[in-house]
């Protein structure tokens, strides 16, 4: 029984005995859940308007987004996870001739850049990966987030060889290939970063000269 189910069951029990806790939720059938999900999707379509580069088509979910939305923030079951990872693994496109490392200095700029793809952004303007929003990378940068694990000493800890390079590039291209319903954006598959940008970020993680590995 996962944590959320425990919480839901506990709150129903405690509500019965009159303790103050999270509002008790009635047990909902999967048919009801699907109906509510359909209502939510329909409501979203009429509650947003296109602006700049963000059209209403951004509210169309692909199979991964739909499956992950149904989990209420919980980890997917083994079966669902395997299905999602297989689906996303198939999308991986590596640069030619296994040349996966770009310029780490440019990678650092891309990691720092928070703009890109918002309706307030100039479509011709910079698009970054915003890595520091969620991760620690170069030790000199104190302003880092903790939504994702620290990537400090990424290659130093895992090795500098081609297999680790492919893993790093693959993670950036499509993190759901390795961790179904990851919080991390699918930078390559969803067309956020160019191949060169992903090579530069891979270099930030993998280059022995990168501050990440010092």
């Amino acid at each position: 029984m996962n944590a959320r189910t425990v919480l839901a069951v506990t709150s129903v029990v405690l509500a019965v005995v009159g303790c103050s806790t999270a509002p008790s939720k009635p047990v909902v059938s999967s048919v009801e859940r699907e109906e509510t999900a359909a209502k939510a999707s329909a409501m979203l379509k009429t509650s947003f308007k296109a602006n700049g580069q963000a059209g209403l088509d951004r509210l169309d979910q692909d199979e991964t987004q739909r499956a992950c939305s149904a989990l209420d923030g919980n980890a997917p079951s083994k079966e669902v996870a395997e299905k999602i990872e297989k689906l996303n693994l198939a999308t991986l496109k590596y640069p030619a001739e296994d040349k996966l490392l770009g310029d780490w200095k440019n990678g650092e700029k891309i990691a720092q850049e928070g703009r890109g793809k918002q309706f307030s952004d100039d479509p011709a303007g910079p698009v970054g990966a915003n890595c520091y929003a969620c991760h620690q990378l170069a030790p000199q940068e104190l302003s880092y987030g903790t939504i994702g694990p620290s990537l400090y000493q990424f290659a130093k800890l895992r090795g500098y060889g081609i297999e680790t390079q492919r893993y790093a590039y693959g993670k950036i291209y499509n993190p759901d290939a390795y961790a179904a319903c990851s919080n991390m954006p699918r930078f390559g598959h969803n067309g956020i970063l160019t191949e060169q940008q992903m090579k530069d970020v891979t270099a930030l993680l993998m280059d022995p000269a990168s501050p990440v590995n010092k």
Binding site: T36, A37, K39, A40, S41, M43, L44, A54, R58, L59, D60, Q61, T64, Q65, C68, S69, A70, L71, D72, G73, K117, Y132, A133, C134, S143, Y144, G145, T146, I147, D176, C181, N183, P185, R186, N190, G191, I192
Partner: peptide, 26 residues
């Protein structure tokens, strides 16, 4: 349902940033 709705080019939902304890952006 909207809270857990993952979408857009970054696959973000409210839950992405607001679904765990003790996390921060930057």
């Amino acid at each position: 349902r909207i809270f857990y709705f993952r979408g857009g080019p970054h696959d973000f939902g409210c839950v992405t940033c607001h679904g765990d304890d003790a996390k921060r952006i930057r």
